[in-house]
């Protein structure tokens, strides 16, 4: 019995050998960190003290107004970001499909360029454009006799941040949706045209249902992406003014690397991961109406 098992393992050795190096790095920088984060979230773990805390970190977080604010901000960004991503990238990919193939890739490149640009450059670029005193946008508004706008005020910062994030996130969805759009048989549209269907009717009746699996994919990945937004917000607003754009990940970063409270920070990481898994699962469950073609 044992010998048979051993022989089998020996036969399978190449599978293990080839995956082993990757698995080693993965275990060290992914698997162990996940387990460590869960463990530390149940400990008091600061510069000054450490020890078992049970669910203490979780309890204190759920009573902490700043943390609840960060949860609200995170959800607000997701709620603005995901539908906007889906609608804009869907419409743009339909517009792109009207052009010849060569021009199509030019447009896709244009919308993808912000996604490959360093967030440091993106941040400075927008801070300069949106500056209250000498920014170009306020100058242009002035030409139309509109009063100067403080785009990063307490009330507007979260919307402005979401818009900036949108500009750097549309490229991927546009490329993916365009590929799916290209896969729909032309004959479907020709048949609809014979029946006298209008431009919009064709896309609502044919394109939308045909692309549902791809749209679901984009919905789930952009939701996960929206929850994971971090570096761009840290650079762009640093969570301010007065916590107006502080998301869970920003607060986590502050708690860990400014306040040095690893226990609380890891508890936030666990809560965030649970929220993400639940929402991704719900999306799959509710958006996945099985269509047969």
């Amino acid at each position: 019995m044992l010998k048979r098992e051993f022989n089998l393992l020996y036969k399978e050795r190449y599978g293990f050998l080839f995956v082993a190096p990757a698995l080693l790095f993965f275990a060290l920088f992914y698997l162990y960190p996940i387990l460590d984060a869960i463990k530390v979230s149940f400990y008091k773990y600061t510069y000054y003290s450490s020890g078992w805390a049970g669910i203490g970190n979780y309890q204190s977080l759920l009573q902490d107004d700043v943390f609840l604010r960060s949860v609200k901000n995170t959800l607000l960004i997701v709620i603005m970001f995901v539908p906007a991503t889906l609608i804009i990238s869907f419409i743009l990919s339909i517009f792109i499909s009207l052009f010849r193939t060569r021009l199509q890739s030019v447009f896709k490149a244009v919308f993808y360029i912000p996604a490959v640009t360093s967030i440091v450059s993106i941040t400075f670029m927008w801070q300069y454009l949106l500056n209250y005193d000498f920014g170009l946008l306020n100058f242009l508004l002035g030409l139309f006799d509109i009063d100067k706008v403080n785009f990063l005020s307490y009330d507007r910062a979260i919307v402005t941040t979401t818009v900036v994030v949108l500009t750097i996130s549309l490229g991927g969805p546009i490329v993916i949706l365009s590929a799916a759009l290209g896969g729909i048989p032309v004959s479907y549209y020709e048949a609809a045209e014979l029946d006298g269907a209008s431009f919009w009717r064709k896309h609502i009746r044919i394109t939308l249902p045909m692309m549902k699996p791809t749209i679901l994919f984009v919905a789930v990945t952009s939701t996960i992406g929206a929850f994971q937004l971090f570096a761009i917000i840290l650079l762009f607003t640093a969570g301010g003014p007065n916590y107006a754009t502080t998301t869970i990940l920003l607060l986590l970063y502050q708690e860990a690397f400014v306040n040095g409270d690893y226990g609380r920070a890891n508890a936030m990481a666990v809560i965030l991961s649970i929220i993400i898994v639940i929402i991704a699962w719900l999306q799959f469950k509710f958006l996945r109406t099985d269509i047969e073609y």
């Binding site: 920088f29 996940i34 460590d36 971090f230 570096a231 860990a256 690893y262 993400i276």
Partner: peptide, 17 residues
């Protein structure tokens, strides 16, 4: 499965390592 875990959530344990 690990792809759903936000990278920033693992910064602390990764930093410790």
């Amino acid at each position: 499965g690990s792809m759903t875990i936000p990278g920033a959530a693992l910064l602390i344990p990764q930093f410790k390592i």
